[in-house]
Design a protein around this nucleic acid. Sequence first.
DNA 1: TCGTACAACTAAAACGTTTGCGTAAATAAA
DNA 2: TTTATTTACGCAAACGTTTTAGTTGTACGA
Lengths: 364, 364
Amino acid sequence: MNFEAITIRDIAKELKLSVSTVSKALRDSYEISGKTKELVTNYAREHNYRPNPIAQSLKQGRSKSIGIVVSTIDNHFFSQVIDGIESVAHNNGYNVIITQTHESFDLEVQNVEHLTYRSIDGLLISLSTETKNIDHLKRLHSQGLPIVFFDRVSSEIDTHKVIADNYKGAYDATDHLLQSGFKNIATITSSANVSITSERLEGYKKALTDSGITINDDYIKYCPHGGKTTEEIEKALNELLSLDIWPDAILTASDRITTTTLALLHKLHIKIPEDIALLGFTNTNLADVLFPPLSSVYQPGFDIGKNAVEMLLSLIQAKRPVEEFETRILPTKLYKRQSTASSNSRLVDDANSIKPDGRKKDLK
Amino acid sequence: MNFEAITIRDIAKELKLSVSTVSKALRDSYEISGKTKELVTNYAREHNYRPNPIAQSLKQGRSKSIGIVVSTIDNHFFSQVIDGIESVAHNNGYNVIITQTHESFDLEVQNVEHLTYRSIDGLLISLSTETKNIDHLKRLHSQGLPIVFFDRVSSEIDTHKVIADNYKGAYDATDHLLQSGFKNIATITSSANVSITSERLEGYKKALTDSGITINDDYIKYCPHGGKTTEEIEKALNELLSLDIWPDAILTASDRITTTTLALLHKLHIKIPEDIALLGFTNTNLADVLFPPLSSVYQPGFDIGKNAVEMLLSLIQAKRPVEEFETRILPTKLYKRQSTASSNSRLVDDANSIKPDGRKKDLK
DNA sequence: TCGTACAACTAAAACGTTTGCGTAAATAAA
DNA sequence: TTTATTTACGCAAACGTTTTAGTTGTACGA
């Protein structure tokens, strides 16, 4: 409900003008004299007039809101993306409506349905791990709904896209493991359905072959549900640990998988990095204070969100049909920490092994 | 935009009925015969008719959307709350519109303004740390906008509220520290403005006095911005460490403060719990794998969100003015981990100190 | 003095619903 | 048969805007 509901009609009555004059005066139409405009705008300001956005939406056929579909909001990467989206959207007078798929295809279809039913002006989506078929999006897109993909994109729809440089992120990460002296590098990655998986996998493979190492398919494990359940990660890890030759390092290719793998290795009392090194994609700000400090690939979540919504708004506000589409690839950042320390430097350097040098100490 | 836009008018024309008949048929009015109802609903289903929610909103004076105001979404506690809100809201056909204050009073006012301007049916709010004055909410509330507070509540408005049992959470946490043999227990807490601070502080104090310990005000430090910046936490910690007698344990009373304090202690090479024990409110699922595993007070974020939105919906859907208000207090959960281990058990038990017993091992 | 042009405004339709009221036809009661 | 009641539907207003198509009144050139 819009409270303190003063309408354009109230103003018209009070000022003895017609409704249309008031409307035009407020919209600064050339048809209205300066005197009248001033009269109206002053009155409107003084009485705290607010146009009813619902009436405007109905009339103008746009809702000034955009829909977001992500797998889950309780994840640093996605909440940072949404943060970025929200900041730009609000500045442009748009609301965002967030929905979560929890990695379910059915929920994705249902959410998209619900969003269009709620009359959104555009859609920002990162596909669920279960999604293979995107007919539900194709239909809407062909009907003219502006769509921008981010993170988990699809090549089946020609539109703007924003992703992190997953290929390079994984390449650099793998390369760092190689440089640190690890040879048998395994990877636990997300569902084969989603784009990020193949991109990261390619980077991983290329780094290995560039170093003359043959790809061992036994070292590549998928999590069909993107690590939503601990079980599937446990299964993947289990399979790696039942190989004749243990991997000496693991690259985990998504946020949840990374943190869960770390927890599982702990549970098994497997030393990191002595027994197995760990490096993963994650946006947690706690990587530094994990045990051990976790080497990680950080994605620019906030910027991905910002870019995505900017592109979406440009589509929404385009005067003529847009034909040229762009895929923005934003750089990731590799943080080298103790979980991938090479054998030389693997000893010591444990925070707790250094004694405080006295009872008094200042920060910095 | 609502695509595939088939309207009630199209149906009327096609079926040679009046618009009102179609509308009533779809709403299952007693005025319409069974035959006609069937005819209309069948046609509607076949042609995938969707009522335009904007037109409905305009007509019915409600928007079927609710506003949320939190300090930041990039925080496990709040994202879990929102997750809970979203799950219930969607099931009831409501959208949620999320806004962030980033702990700024001005942004809070602006967001609330923006939300009501967007015609929300109700508001869920957790106040910013800067907020002392809630006139902006009082005005709306007196005009009839349903409001439910959660987490950081205010006593100045009589309405439903949902909070974690902050008092007991802090009491139990402090008590646990005492039981573990710590004597000089400090606390770094959020802004004195917000309810959670006083609730948690009271629990902390009561636990101390119950154990016959006098409160030492030097051991109580506030973060006026709720730990938004590292600086203010650094300052608080610095002040504690410049005392003649260091605290031997710290209770951190909010998520961000907890994790940042952990990081700062690391940076200072202060051993946890040997030099200073640490226990904090946090909803991260990584507490287990931090260094050291962090004792924590966990709040039922998801349930807080669920309860809050359920109460809000009951207010929105109430036939008559609600006069009886309820404050739901949900239990917190204390996880005892190594960061608060008592001196006896402080040795060993380090995950990495246990050797894997061979190359082959199964999980569980 | 007339027609024309322009400025400044108004009337009314439209967006897609919902809903109170009116009414014709069918049925029941008298 | 007449009158009352019920059933099933249509008309039109309403929600608060925007916008198209007028309608005034005045000024101006001829």
